[in-house]
Structures are given as C-alpha cells and as structure tokens.
C-alpha cells in the first residue's frame, strides 16, 4: 500500500466503529491533526490480534494534534501538542475548505 499522506498533510481520524483489538484510541477519533512524518509500513495490529500474519502491511504515520482541539477545557499553551501513531486506514484527508476553520 502506497502511503497516502506525507508530513504537513492535514488528516481527520475516522471512527471506524471496529470491534476487537485496535490501536486508535477513542480520544483522537473525529479530530483532525497534522502528519508529522511517515513511520514506514507495518502489519496491521487488527490482523495480528487474530493471528493473521498474511498482511498486507499498512503505512503508519505520526500525527500531531493541538491539545486545545482535543480537549475543550484544556489548560496550557495553544502550542501544546499530542503526538500519536495512526495507521493509514484510520485517516481521511482534510479538504482545504475545512482547513479554513
């Protein structure tokens, strides 16, 4: 799978509603952040969790989120950031129109 995103891209975290083992915590779902860098490609933990090692591999990114965006009552600086790793299939591109707000 070719990575769809690169550093600087704005992405929205999907809430895929998957049951079972996933590595996308609830608190970042439906929030948008910025790709910090590509981490490479890895076997999907959702497959590994059920013993499937046949692949395919999935691109992984580190994504940064403004703390003030994650938590409405956040107490700290506007520049404070949360950095987390997210797999490609949990992300959508954020369009320029959305970027404006």
């Amino acid at each position: 799978m070719i990575p769809r995103f690169d550093a600087g891209d704005r992405v929205l975290v999907l809430d895929l509603g998957k049951s079972g083992h996933v590595r996308t915590p609830f608190y970042v779902r439906r929030h948008s952040g910025v790709v910090l860098h590509r981490c490479g490609a890895f076997l999907n933990p959702e497959d590994l969790a059920i013993g499937n090692v046949a692949g395919p591999v999935v691109p992984l990114y580190r994504v940064g989120f403004a703390m003030t965006d994650l938590w409405k009552d956040y107490r700290g600086l506007p520049a404070d950031m949360l950095c987390i790793e997210l797999y490609d299939h949990w992300l959508n591109p954020v369009e320029a129109a959305v970027r404006a707000d």
Binding site: P45, L48, G51, V53
Partner: peptide
C-alpha cells in the same frame, strides 16, 4: 516460535 504476537496478547486482556 511466532506463536503469539503482542497484539494477540493485548486482544486477550482487552476482551
């Protein structure tokens, strides 16, 4: 061995 990945273990205690 490749008998149990970390994600399988996690699935175990998450379920």
């Amino acid at each position: 061995r490749r008998m149990m990945s970390l994600d399988e273990l996690r699935r175990g205690f998450e379920s």
